[in-house]
């Protein structure tokens, strides 16, 4: 291939990627500028930029916060997300360490069970799950953490196992000889080494749990506890009308923390995912 052809191909690729980026971001941008428009105009002119006539400043944000209890939902969402991610990271990292280092039929079965759980769609188990969760008294923000542990364990164990395999076992043996027991070895030697995978698993789980709608909607007692996604859903139907302005504002407020979190940690995702792939 000639140099000019290569250059043209490169430009074409850049153009295509640029177009895809804009296409991907466009809905978010539309939501953003609609959040500053009067709700009457959102349905009428959804793709128009705010004008002097349609612009209402932060009124939609104030409505979402004051009228729909958005801040309470943020609190519950933060509680559920932080709690679930912490429990997932703690339990699955220990589980992955154990099943990687102790090779027997039981640990193999656990590993394949975790991997298999990734391919089972949530919709397949949602009815029985919500029934069981209700009977076990898990329909609270602290109870749903257990349910999230079950759903998050598959991917987390899979990723942690890949990384643990790449840690030379001699490091753990050295700790054992130096005087550390298994628990101390795990927390003072293995966990610091697994930091990149901890971060990447944490980011993936955080984004999923933060944005999740169906599981909390089915499991939580929504008369008492509402996550952000449930509140947004309630804005649409609970009063017999749709407050599109508040929805737009709530969507933006919901997405900001997770975008900031992702942008600040994104370099670790690639590092963590690739960490287990190549022997160090």
């Amino acid at each position: 291939m000639k140099r000019s052809e290569r250059k043209a191909l490169s430009w074409a690729g850049t153009g295509l990627m640029g177009f895809l980026c804009v296409a991907w971001l466009l809905p978010v941008i539309i939501v953003l500028f609609n959040s500053f428009k009067n709700k009457m105009f959102i349905n009428l002119e959804p793709f128009e930029l705010p004008t002097e006539q349609t612009y209402i400043g932060l009124e939609n944000y104030e409505t979402a916060i004051d009228k729909y209890g958005f801040l309470d939902s943020v609190g519950w969402t933060v509680f559920i997300t932080v709690g679930s991610v912490a429990v997932i990271l703690l339990c699955t990292s220990m589980c992955a360490w154990y099943i990687t280092r102790v090779q027997n039929r039981f640990t193999k079965a656990i590993y394949f069970l975790c991997v298999f759980s990734m391919v089972v769609p949530f919709q397949m188990v949602m009815f029985t799950l919500s029934m069981i969760a209700d009977r076990l008294g898990l329909s609270t923000p602290w109870g749903i953490i257990v349910v999230y542990l079950g759903f998050g364990a598959g991917l987390a164990v899979f990723m942690f196992c890949g990384f643990v395999k790449s840690i030379p076992i001699e490091i753990e043996e050295a700790a054992l000889i130096d005087g550390a027991g298994p628990i101390r070895t795990f927390f003072t030697v293995v966990v610091p080494i697994m930091k990149p995978t901890f971060i990447s698993v944490g980011i993936l789980q955080t984004m999923w749990i933060w944005n999740d709608f169906l599981l909390p909607y089915l499991v939580l007692d929504t008369t008492k506890y509402k996550t952000i996604s449930i509140v947004i859903q309630f804005m649409k139907g609970s009063y017999g009308r749709v407050d599109m302005g508040a929805i737009m504002a709530a969507l933006i407020m919901a997405v900001i923390p997770v975008v900031v979190f992702y942008l600040s940690c994104q370099k670790y995702i690639i590092k963590g995912v690739a960490a287990g792939a190549v022997k160090g």
Binding site: E170, E173, A174, L176, I177, D178, A180, V189, I193
Partner: peptide, 16 residues
């Protein structure tokens, strides 16, 4: 191992 009063040097160093 920790109670044997031994120390070990590994081929791949096994440094933390």
């Amino acid at each position: 191992p920790r109670d044997r009063d031994i120390a070990m040097v590994f081929q791949n160093y096994a440094l933390y």
